[in-house]
Every structure is written in structure tokens, then in C-alpha cells.
Amino acid sequence: MRRLLPYAPDVTDLTSAEDTPWTLEALADAYAYPAAAVDAGVPWLRGNMVSSLDGAARLDGLSDGLSSPADKRIFGVLRALADVVLVGAQTVRAEGYRPAMARAEFAAERAARGQGPAPVIAVVSGALDLDFDLPLFTAPLVRTVVLTAETAPADGLAAARRVADVVIAGEAHVDPVRAVAALVERGWTRLLTEGGPRLLGQLAEAGALDELCLTLAPLLAAGGAPRIAYGAQAVAERMDLVGLLEEKGFLFARYARSVKIAQ
């Protein structure tokens, strides 16, 4: 893996050969939450998505078809840095989401930051059309949170409350701004969303996304897969490129909103 931006010729392990994997520590340094935001107690919501060259968010229905070993390492590091992972119900169903795991390599750092052993998974679902017998709900290391709306079905609410912490974050639909605010109220300021595209689009429309960690796979996908973010409204918010890595043709970019604190 090679670091292309920001250029650091004096740091050997950050400019290693393309076929040399980075250490987890080096990746954690490269993807650390902005120090200025952390020091000021400012919430920071980053998204982590993968895309084909032509913008597809999935291959054969799943994002895994666009991934790579380096992408999976970064995926794990981003989770290890986060307080909470925000994810849409459709992605939970399609990707077979499981509880976040504790990583021994990050245990000391998480404890020093006052974090639990693993990030909380927070699922956005207005209709509560979820399988509450999945390990995500029955066997998490830390209790899963479900963000739903006031109009959620009563039987779904009852089932969710048996296995998760339920938060009402909207009336007819889940309001992404209220959902993020509810997580911040619990003291979770290092936020991560893994989508899917509909949730990422809603967060972008609401102006709630501070950073995008984007893996660009060297693949053409074509077909009818959605973009990594889509919704009812178009947005045109400028983001600044603050980091870029490369391995075996895959690009790993960090973009941050220029109007907010960035490293």
C-alpha cells in the first residue's frame, strides 16, 4: 500500500511498497478522527462506502463484490475507531449484518478514549421489518440500537424493545438529523455510517455527513446497481480531499466537508 496524499516521505511505513500491507496502527493513524473536532467535542459523522469505476455501489447485489483485502482492513479499522455505526435496515437485511466484534489490537486505545470494547450498531428502520432473531440483536457485545419513527407498528416496537434500545427519531419517517442527534446525546461523537445508499443519500441531503471514506474499485460494473448515495433531492456540497492511499489499483480516499473542522 502506498500513501499518495498527504505525502510523507519521512515516514517509511506510510510510503511502503504497493505490495506491502500497512500495519493496523498505521491505518488507524491515517484514518484518525480529526483532532480539532475531538478536542472540541464536536460530533463527526463519516461514511464508508465502496464504488466501482462507473459508480455502482454493489456487484451482484452485494458490496462485497467490489471489495478487496485492503478495503476490508480499512473497514475494520474504521469500526475500531468509531463509537457507533449507523446503518440502514435494507443493508442489514442484504448484507447479513452481525454484531461488531472487540479487536484485541485496539482494546487499549478504545479504553483510553473512554469507548466500549466495540462500537454500537444503530439500525435505521421506520417499518421495523427486521429479523430480531439475528445475532445482531440476540448476541451483540454491546446492545444494538434501533432508530425508528412514531408510526412504527406496535408489534414491531414490542419485538425491537425486547432485544434492542429503541429510539424514536421522527414522525412518519426516521429523520436523519434527529437520528444523529439522538446518538450524540448518548455521548457518541465519533460516528460512522456504512450506508446503504438510501441512508447515505438522506444524510447527504440533510447536510449531516462530515466525511466520506470512499474505496474506488478498479472494476466496471454497469447494470442497474445504485450509486453509493441516492435520494429524492440532489445536493452539490463541495468536499476536500484530505487523504489518498493506493493498493493494487484500488484507491482509498478521504473527503471532508470544507465548512467544518478537518485535519
Score class of each variant (00 low, 15 high):
residue 44 W to I: 05
residue 55 G to S: 02
residue 135 P to Y: 11
residue 145 V to K: 02
residue 90 Q to I: 13
residue 56 A to Y: 02
residue 124 V to H: 03
residue 111 A to F: 00
residue 47 G to W: 01
residue 56 A to Q: 08
residue 100 A to D: 02
residue 31 Y to G: 08
residue 41 G to F: 12
residue 116 G to E: 12
residue 53 L to F: 06
residue 61 G to E: 01
residue 88 G to S: 05
residue 57 A to K: 01
residue 45 L to P: 00
residue 114 G to V: 06
residue 154 A to S: 13
residue 151 T to F: 08
residue 121 I to L: 15
residue 54 D to H: 04
residue 41 G to A: 13
residue 95 E to A: 11
residue 96 G to I: 12
residue 56 A to M: 07
residue 44 W to T: 09
residue 43 P to A: 09
residue 87 V to R: 01
residue 88 G to I: 07
residue 32 A to H: 08
residue 124 V to D: 03
residue 66 L to V: 09
residue 111 A to W: 00
residue 37 A to M: 08
residue 88 G to V: 08
residue 82 A to F: 14
residue 95 E to V: 11
residue 142 V to D: 00
residue 45 L to H: 01
residue 95 E to Q: 03
residue 51 S to A: 13
residue 158 A to F: 04
residue 123 V to D: 05
residue 151 T to H: 13
residue 103 R to E: 15
residue 50 V to F: 08
residue 127 A to N: 08
residue 22 W to F: 15
residue 45 L to N: 00
residue 125 S to D: 05
residue 67 S to I: 12
residue 27 L to S: 07
residue 156 G to L: 14
residue 79 R to H: 14
residue 112 A to F: 03
residue 67 S to E: 09
residue 82 A to G: 12
residue 99 P to S: 07
residue 145 V to D: 05
residue 52 S to W: 03
residue 64 D to R: 15
residue 89 A to T: 03
residue 102 A to T: 11
residue 25 E to H: 10
residue 123 V to I: 14
residue 96 G to V: 12
residue 19 D to A: 15
residue 130 L to D: 02
residue 113 R to I: 07
residue 30 A to F: 13
residue 83 D to F: 11
residue 120 V to N: 04
residue 88 G to H: 05
residue 123 V to A: 08
residue 140 P to G: 06
residue 160 A to I: 10
residue 36 A to V: 14
residue 47 G to H: 00
residue 36 A to R: 11
residue 50 V to C: 10
residue 30 A to V: 12
residue 155 D to M: 12
residue 113 R to W: 12
residue 23 T to E: 06
residue 128 L to A: 14
residue 54 D to S: 05
residue 133 D to G: 15
residue 46 R to T: 06
residue 70 A to G: 04
residue 63 S to Q: 02
residue 99 P to W: 06
residue 161 R to K: 14
residue 20 T to S: 03
